Computed example of a mutant assay.
Amino acid sequence: MPIYEYICRDCGARFESMRPMREADQPISCKVCLSPNTYRTVSVFFAASEGRAITNQTGCASCGGGSCASCGHH
């Protein structure tokens, strides 16, 4: 089961939840303030393969790598 990252629009907390893919975009309560006003964000990862770094730190397609209210990328 995949782990998804979410951000609370009310308190700004970032949290993770292990959920089935079919539930990835369904409402989920914030683990800090319990608000249902949350959204799924793009996960950032780092991996190394044969000495080369592989990263995903560009944000979502909407932000084009700049600050974005939709995915929380800075």
Score class of each variant (00 low, 15 high):
A24R: 11
Y39T: 00
S70D: 11
I28D: 07
R22F: 11
M1K: 08
I3Y: 15
C63K: 02
R52D: 15
S17T: 09
E5T: 13
A53L: 09
A53K: 10
D10C: 12
N37I: 01
C60E: 07
Q26N: 09
P20F: 10
L34I: 09
V44Y: 15
V32M: 05
E16K: 03
D10Y: 15
T58H: 13
A61G: 06
G65E: 05
H74V: 09
D10P: 06
L34F: 15
A47T: 11
R9T: 01
T55I: 03
T58P: 08
G64V: 04
D10E: 15
E23I: 00
A69N: 13
L34T: 14
S62M: 04
A48C: 08
C60D: 09
E16T: 06
C60W: 10
G59L: 00
F45Q: 03
C8Y: 08
R52E: 15
S35L: 02
A24D: 14
A48D: 14
T55K: 04
E16G: 04
F46G: 05
I28F: 12
E16C: 02
M18F: 14
I54P: 06
A47E: 14
P27T: 07
F15Q: 01
C30P: 01
A13P: 03
G66M: 02
I28T: 08
I28Y: 11
M1A: 11
D25S: 09
L34W: 15
E5G: 07
Y39Q: 01
S49N: 12
Q26G: 07
R19Q: 14
S70V: 07
T38Q: 03
H73Y: 03
V32D: 08
M18K: 12
I7S: 05
M18P: 10
S70F: 07
A61C: 05
F45A: 05
G64W: 10
I7K: 08
I3L: 09
I3C: 08
F15I: 00
E5Y: 13
Y6V: 00
P2Q: 15
N56V: 02
S67P: 06
I54V: 10
S49H: 15
P27Q: 04
G66V: 04
A53T: 12
C63M: 04
P2S: 15
V44T: 14
S70R: 08
R19N: 08
S29N: 10
C30Q: 00
T55A: 05
I54A: 07
G66Y: 12
A47L: 05
C8M: 01
P36Y: 07
V44F: 14
T41I: 04
R14P: 00
M1L: 04
S67I: 01
C30S: 02
E23Y: 06
P27Y: 04
C60N: 09
A24V: 04
Y4G: 02
G51Y: 13
A24P: 10
T41K: 03
S70H: 11
